[in-house]
Design a protein around this nucleic acid. Structure first.
Length: 370
RNA sequence: GUGCCAGUAGCUCAAUGGCAGAGCGCCGCACUGUGGAUGCGGUGGUUGUGGGUUCAAGUCCCAUCUGGCACC
């Protein structure tokens, strides 16, 4: 594995918070960054052109979903994921580990890999670390993820064997990787248990990935538990590699994450909530189905400069939501993504200008949804 | 005009003479490496109207109103 096109350049730091640039073959990622999720090769309800306008610099896609449909080999034949979905900026593919455990049925795990039934058609499949690498190489994202075992996302069991398996799989991913134009990130697991997280962070750090991720958080544990795990893991992971907190989160989660050394975030929340009628601001959620907005002529958020807030009233958005018009998902997705992307950018500027402490303090002064 | 059928929640409909309910809607909540999904909670009634029988009537009887159908 060579490291050729990838370089993480740290530009500024304040306490544990960092601002940097991660260079990839499809351009730089300015961190901290929020990555919209486009599981099936599309950020739902939003066009690539709209994503660009939002300032998205990195988006996610998913190995499990694209392998099942339309198939990674087809994507490769059609020129890879960037060409297929017409997105020329960086892409990260998740390995499918999480989905195998959260979506697939009848899974059976052993040290070799995972057998599972497709949630699409019930067909049976077998994933191994090597297979997850091969699929991700066919897809061709800039950042690819190690295949991990996310220990029963909704349980809180002390699962040391799952952590050890994740380590062995991480090493197999590292060995199986063949392309040098993709960065491979390892994933720290260990649930809410300090000793497992410590052990996992040391192991993953030792494999010298081009970036490191923290998985298995924000799956039902408390905020205190999540923060504690980040504080344990952070000093162990190499300082000169980007750190990615998988699946997180809300505006407050992002600030809390940056305070604990995180550089990259992704979350389905802004786009999922948009499809479920909610608008996100930095401090609250507005349920746009609420009758209270039926005659409200103002924008979603007075201080927001997104396309939706510049052009549409709350009353109109509420009408679209109640009438179940598709445009409601698009306009709310644009707003919600803007909220998080802009927040990441503001955090970055604050770090670069050495005022992130004040920024965070000011944020938490106001009541938030937490 | 005569006969038959039907009137129960905003809508479509349940309910042996025995606590008037469901689905949808409406109001609200949840959603964190995405199933445009789903789950949860709440609001909701002079049973068309007026009498009567009965311990007890949405239910049985009488009258009446409205709608539908059939026949003159």
């Amino acid at each position: 594995m060579t490291i050729a096109p990838f370089k993480f350049e740290l530009q500024a730091r304040q306490a544990r918070a960092r601002a940097g640039i991660f260079h990839t073959p499809h351009g730089p990622i300015l961190t901290p960054v929020f990555a919209p999720v486009g599981t099936q090769g599309t950020v739902k309800a939003v066009t690539p052109a709209q994503l660009s306008e939002l300032g998205a610099s990195l988006i996610l896609a998913n190995t499990y979903h694209l392998y099942l449909r339309p198939g990674d080999e087809l994507v490769a034949e059609l020129g890879g994921l960037h060409a297929f979905m017409n997105w020329s900026a960086p892409i990260l593919t998740d390995s499918g580990g999480f989905q195998v455990f959260s979506l697939a049925e009848n899974r059976e795990v052993n040290d070799e890999g995972v057998t599972f039934k497709s949630h699409v058609d019930g067909s049976v499949h077998f994933f191994t670390p090597e297979k997850a690498m091969a699929i991700q190489e066919n897809l061709g994202a800039d950042i690819i993820m190690a295949f991990d075992e996310c220990a029963q996302p909704y349980e809180r069991q002390y699962n040391e064997s799952a952590v050890k398996r994740t380590h062995s799989w991480a090493e197999r991913c590292w060995r199986a990787k063949t392309r040098d134009d993709q960065a491979l990130f390892g994933i720290v697991q260990g649930g809410v248990f300090p000793d497992l997280r410590t052990q996992s962070a040391h192991y993953i750090a030792g494999l010298d990935f081009q970036g490191n991720a923290i998985g298995g958080l924000s799956v039902g544990e408390t905020k205190e538990e999540m923060h504690a795990m980040l504080e344990i893991v952070d000093p162990i992971l190499p300082d000169d590699k980007p750190r990615y907190l998988m699946g997180v989160g809300t505006p407050a989660d992002m600030i809390n994450g940056v305070m604990r050394g995180i550089d990259i975030f992704d979350c389905v929340l802004p786009t999922r909530l948009a499809r479920h009628n909610a608008a996100l601001t930095r401090t609250e959620r507005l349920n746009m189905a609420n009758a209270a907005y039926s005659d409200d002529p103002g924008p979603l958020d007075e201080s927001c400069e997104c396309y939706t807030c510049r052009n549409f009233s709350r009353a109109y958005l509420r009408h679209l939501v109640v009438a179940k018009e598709m445009l409601s998902a698009t306009l709310l997705s644009i707003h919600n993504l803007h909220t998080l992307i802009q927040l990441a950018d503001d955090i970055r500027q604050a770090i670069l200008e050495a005022r992130f402490d004040d920024f965070a303090a000011q944020f938490f002064e106001n009541p938030t949804e937490e």
